[in-house]
Amino acid sequence: MGISNIWVFAQVANGAPTSGSLELVTKARTLGGSVSVWVAGDGASVAGALGEYGASKVFAVDYGQNLAGVAVASAMKATIDGGESPDLVMFPQSYEGRDVMARLSVKLGRTVLTNSVDIEVAGDSVSATTPIFGGNTLVTTTFTGGAPYLAAFRPKSFNPEASGGAAAAVQAVSVPDLGATGTAKVTAVHVEETTGPKLDEANVVVSGGRGLGESANYAMIETLAKLLKGAPGASRAIVDAGWVPYSYQVGQTGKVVKPSVYIAAGISGATQHMVGMKGSKNIIAINKDKEAPIFGIADLGIVGDVHKVLPKLIEALQGR
């Protein structure tokens, strides 16, 4: 029997599906059966792109001022009650993705497997794999309840590949009465502008951590990133300390990056951080503590003071 009807919740940013969403559509296509994609907002503008990656249908939820999570989950539940029967629902591990899957999980009385990096379908058995302990151990978990199976995936688990399909058919789905759960309203939307390559798409990422000592020293990270045509990143510690915006954060709760070169300056390598960058092709670490876990995964480790190494490195690169 296997899986014949798959739903994917796609996160849309700046009018296009995110790459994290397109990789899920790509993976869903390989699992067999039909792929329908849910989006919060306008469906027509993304139907072409989603169709190209293998979606045959787009369910578009006009959520108005509601928070997208509760609105989309309720619309999904109403659609299932109306007769649709997805076998598997896939979510990106994004802010909206988490809200939708959590709400839907309760509405359907189904568990949701999160932080997955792979999914396997063998007959009626569906299993998802999750890295734990900073990626040192891989745990495979099999769903034991009935369908629909709910699973969420970390970004960059699969490669997005277009299959050249036609634009997906768009079906508008209205938001059912949300009752008390629908009383939270979005009153303003703020977009934080960034320049240079995007953190999760850059070929080179230079990240700074608490070892920089004070926020003014983060300027060295930005300078080095610019010289290498890369993006500046940060550990959770200095984001929490307010040195840089949250959008700079690399790690479990931030961005997952897989650049050609990752430079970690003054970052010890907490599990939180490592899961967000250990997929980088080459890692350079500079840290004054030679016992720092980051050296365990670095291709080139410099045991030294970032305040001494970075200025010299910047000077050498500027002189080229």
């Binding site: 568990t111 040192n136 495979t140 034991t144 309840g145 995964i297 480790g301 410099i302």
Partner: peptide
């Protein structure tokens, strides 16, 4: 729980490279 752990495996370890002390 609607889930059951079916396998636990060690991920391919990322080997540490060269670590050197800064001498300036």
């Amino acid at each position: 729980a609607g889930q059951q752990i079916s396998n636990v495996a060690q991920a391919e370890a990322r080997a540490a490279g060269e670590v050197i002390e800064d001498d300036g």
